[in-house]
Design a protein around this nucleic acid. Structure first.
Lengths: 210, 210
DNA sequence: TAGATTGTTAATCGATTAACAATC
DNA sequence: TAGATTGTTAATCGATTAACAATC
């Protein structure tokens, strides 16, 4: 309900990390946390933490710090974590399987409700309580299950057509693991998380020690 | 051999994408590519592409564009892709398995030579031509195989101790998939690629349509 | 009151965009 | 020569850092 100023892009990336630290403190029974404590846990200057909090609408008290519960709530609100959202995975290879079996979904407020593949040998296999379906069913399922986000874990060559299909089905966000840019209408956001690009970046940083 | 000016951080991230496009053009038999063509393929303004090239030491000809072979070589040099490097994975869960089975390694000039885990049930299992070993063997193996990079795919709670072990063994780069910051000496770079953070970012972008 | 900590503005730095010159 | 395309500097914008004021 708080009137939030929109945090800057750089700030958003950090707020995400803060949440992790705050949750940790909360688990340890702490009720308050200082900007210095958050900064120390992440290797970030305390001033930067405070300025991010400032952008968030501020909530701290001198000599005491920030109330962890309140702060966690604020940040969860920024990321819309507490609103239940549905997601589906397209491409049930090794990576799709790893994502399907991971515990990341509830932590971001998502429920993984469906998995699609186009390989007849994979279609119909079970994974936990999810049965892999044909991509031919995608549009119908996305609509009936009100899926808002699609994950692309197909080969690069099939990434754009998969994105097109997801857009047609009506998802509003795409998490793209293929090492290519996919194009979508402005109303559909794309978050790239190519492992390939990550590894190349690692090579660069290894070389430059940066 | 070219004397390269060091590209800016933001520019580096883009150069990586350019390489993908350039390779594509090369496969199609094209010998030259213009900044507009690169930009179009990635949704980036052509001027920005040219300025990145400028930072790279420039190589284009008006009316003709950039020679793909030369450009690819320059960028590969920036990322040190053509120098053979060895890497190991620590943590052979779903994600470790997906990474081990992926084709990203040679594309960045890496060879995955070893995989470690601490679960006795996992140790000794085979995956392709790799046998999973105990983390107890890590230090010795990293030294004898001259492994330069370690991948952390263990649970968050074990991430820091894994990083410590890798540092002790002598790796110079860590690719961290755990959703926590790990601390290392300045001589060891850490590239974070937490899927958890990626999904939270997706949630944010879904909410704000940014 | 003194000291610790947060809140806020100003100065610096880096990256992007705009403008135009140079070249094939 | 005209036009397409690259090369380079200047202006703008945004993010970080520095400085200090405010508050418990």
């Amino acid at each position: 309900m708080t009137a939030l100023r929109k945090p800057s892009r750089a700030s958003v990336l950090r707020l995400e990390l803060y949440l992790e630290v705050i949750d940790q403190f909360q688990k340890e029974g702490r009720t308050h946390i200082t900007s210095a404590e958050i900064g120390e846990a992440l290797g970030i200057p305390d001033v930067k933490v405070r300025q991010d909090m400032f952008g968030l609408g501020t909530a701290g008290r001198p000599r005491v710090g920030y109330e962890v519960e309140h702060l966690a709530r604020l940040i969860r609100e920024v990321f819309d974590i507490d609103r239940p959202k549905s997601a589906c995975i397209v491409g049930f290879g090794n990576l799709g399987r790893a994502l399907a079996g991971s515990n990341i979904w509830p932590r971001a407020g998502f429920k993984l409700t469906s998995v699609f593949d186009r390989d007849p040998n994979v279609i119909g296999t079970e994974f936990g309580d999810i049965r892999v379906r044909s991509v031919a069913e995608l549009i119908g399922v996305v609509k009936t299950e009100k899926i808002e986000a699609g994950v692309i874990t197909v080969p690069a060559s099939a990434a754009q057509e998969t994105a097109d299909l997801l857009v047609l089905a009506g998802v509003k966000a795409i998490w793209n693991f293929a090492p290519v840019k996919v194009f979508t209408p402005e109303s559909v956001v794309v978050e790239d998380q190519s492992l390939s690009w990550g590894l190349v970046t690692l090579s660069y940083r290894l070389k430059t020690n940066q």
